[in-house]
Design a protein around this nucleic acid. Sequence first.
DNA 1: AAACAGGCCTAAA
DNA 2: TTTAGGCCTGTT
Length: 298
Amino acid sequence: MNYPYIIEEGCTALGEKFVKVGGCGNFSVLKTFDCGQAFRFDPINLQDYKAAFSGVAFGKKVTFCEDTPDTNGNRIVIIGSSANDFDSIWRHYLALDEDYDAIDKAIISAVPYGHDRDEMTAAVNCGAGIRILRQDSFECLISFIISQNNNIPRIKKIITALCEKYGENGNFPTPSALVEAGEDGLFALRTGFRAGYIYDAASKVSSGEVNLAEVASCEDYNRCAEMLCKIKGVGPKVSACVLLFGFGKTEAFPIDVWMKRSLERHFPSGFDHTSLGKNAGIAQQYLFYYERWAGGGK
DNA sequence: AAACAGGCCTAAA
DNA sequence: TTTAGGCCTGTT
């Protein structure tokens, strides 16, 4: 695989720092930030780039721009940050150190020859370039609690309101800040019936009844899910999303309405995600993207 | 206007 | 153990 490396660092005409990073494989800024895993990024219009997204993660404002690939087909990415932040935050956040080419091959070869493998190959080709972001676990937990029975624009709106009202400097609020907000304060942000769920999550995390560090270090997926499901409003789907996007448990395989449709359409005789092991979550993103944004190859 | 949106909780068989 | 309603709100 090709490891990411800094080609150039500098400042824009406006004095904002940037780094130009090569060796990013087939990494796609567009697919990664358009596949619904992160709620605090929005597309921005920069004519020089194929795709650009701007947002906040880990308390830092950042922009990711998809530049043209180098002569070997390796993606170059412009990141609006210091070289220091690239090394300490964004390299890891974007999972640029993962060998996705190898993962993609493993996913395809884990599916039996014939119809099913053809379907999976099509999904992988369609979603190739997506990276599972390594997001903050608490932010992820609250975000996916909010996502239930909801749509993306409103999810984003609520999260923005949470950050503005209860976060420091517009950052994502801490558990204790949300406890202080109280269920009423959370309800006032138009969270609806999820206010009690958010409050319960904040309380249990802040009291240690649900220990996120323990979840992070636990190797047993079912036990991890069990711990998170102690929170009201956290069930199989939300816990799977949180474990996948917020804890790097890539064996998680969230099944929502889109995934259900995708599996029914492409694998009518059934699909066993456990055979994919640690790659199940990545395959899930491909199948999800294939169904939702590419119409499932109809 | 009525249905739906990246689920989960609760009550009832 | 499984199944059906209901749920805040905003948009179409």
